[in-house]
């Protein structure tokens, strides 16, 4: 183990439930977070992300395996570990009946800072997290995004070495999510290493230096976001036809399927019975070629869009089975003129 490994988990196992019918949540999980790094643990609901964070943040004991933060064991040296970390869990860890300012001041007192320092630090955090205007309102009146930002700020009265963020943007609207990302980036820029869990590939993509894909309590793949996406494949043009017969006919007469390919790259595969997917690099030229190839078959798709790889695709490719919980996400690259986003992808998690 090198000295720049800040958080190190080895062979973590954890089961819940009765001893006779245990439900295994972690099944030999190995992870490392290096100093200065942002690690995103990506996985569907029930993969063991939250359990992992709770073990690393000293809230839960593993059944087997060890974990250290800056060399301190999370079970035996829990008190030392707590001095180095900050945890922001999935459920808001602030008092609804206190104002934002009061919540932060309370955390400042609990961080054992002098009163004068607390006051200044609270003001700074309220400004930095865009909460100054709502500082003296009770948290019960805050929006979901404001609450998350306050929650994050509450963990930053002192400067933690590692920040654990458990699904920081689940349930937030896209704008609040963007704001949250900016705030998280600022925390990281301030020198804190970040251990993040998320269901969203895009979030991992935006924030993480490295991504660990967790399925059924185990890390099944690890790498930079671009590494992972490369393993999943490129973006795809999705073409939805009125009938599955028409989709099949276009698929079978696709230029790429005979020797005179006019569309570079691999041909379409069938996503659903009436939808074809053509891998693309997303460039205007290639998309134009794809649409021209469709037009040449005489068929007219009812709608089309360009889709980036989704968490579903990652899972499908790397694990061979679909996620149990689908990630609601908008690629942001839906081509103009395309129809409605593919609704079969948009079921909420």
């Amino acid at each position: 183990m090198t000295s720049d490994v800040l958080v190190h988990a080895r062979g973590l196992r954890k089961s819940y439930g009765s001893p006779r019918r245990p439900v295994r949540v972690l099944d030999g999980l190995d992870l490392a977070l290096h100093r200065g790094e942002v690690l995103a643990v990506l996985g569907p609901n029930g993969a063991g992300k939250t359990t992992t964070v709770r073990i690393l943040a000293t809230l839960l004991r593993p059944d087997a395996g060890t974990a250290t933060v800056a060399g301190h064991d999370v079970v035996r040296d829990a008190a030392r570990v707590r001095g180095l970390i900050s945890l922001t869990g999935q459920y808001a860890a602030v008092d609804e009946k206190q104002t934002g300012r009061e919540n932060l001041a309370m955390m400042g007192r609990l961080a054992h800072l002098p009163r004068r320092v607390v006051r200044a630090r609270v003001d700074d955090l309220l400004d930095a997290f865009d909460l100054a205007g709502a500082a003296d309102r009770r948290v019960g009146e805050y929006s979901g995004g404001m609450r998350r930002r306050l929650d994050l700020a509450a963990g930053l009265l002192t400067r933690p070495q590692v920040m654990f963020l458990d699904e920081p943007t689940t349930g937030l609207d896209p704008r609040s999510r963007q704001t949250m990302w900016e705030v998280v980036r600022a925390v990281v820029a301030d020198g804190t290493s970040l251990f993040l869990t998320t269901q969203y590939l895009e979030e991992a993509d935006q924030l993480a230096d490295r991504v660990a894909l967790v399925v059924d309590g185990r890390v099944v793949a690890e790498g930079s976001p671009s590494d992972l996406k490369r393993r999943v494949g490129d973006a795809r043009v999705e073409l939805t036809f009125a009938t599955s017969e028409e989709a099949a006919r276009v698929g079978s007469t696709w230029p790429g399927t005979d020797a005179h390919a006019t569309v570079p790259g691999p041909g379409p595969d069938v996503a659903t019975s009436s939808t074809l997917r053509v891998p693309t690099d997303g460039s205007v030229g290639h998309v134009r070629d794809v649409l021209a190839a469709v037009a040449a078959t005489g068929a007219e798709p009812e709608r089309w869009e360009v889709r980036e790889p989704t968490l579903d695709d990652v899972f499908l490719t790397l694990t061979g089975h679909a996620t149990r919980a689908r990630a609601p996400r908008d690629t942001g690259s839906t081509a103009p003129g395309a129809g409605a986003p593919a609704d079969h992808e948009e079921t909420a998690a």
Binding site: A79, R80, R82, G83, L84, A111, H112, L113, R116, V117, A120, R121, D123, D124, L125, D127, A128, F129, D130, L156, T158, R159, P160, T179, E182, V183, A186, V187, A189, D190, G191
Partner: peptide
């Protein structure tokens, strides 16, 4: 929202202290 800065708090907190390592002291 303006780019948040956590690194440069207003004059009074030149450097944030690290959290206390010994919890029992402050019971």
């Amino acid at each position: 929202m303006t780019a948040p800065s956590l690194a440069a708090p207003s004059g009074t907190t030149p450097r944030l202290p690290a959290p206390t390592p010994r919890p029992g002291r402050h019971v």
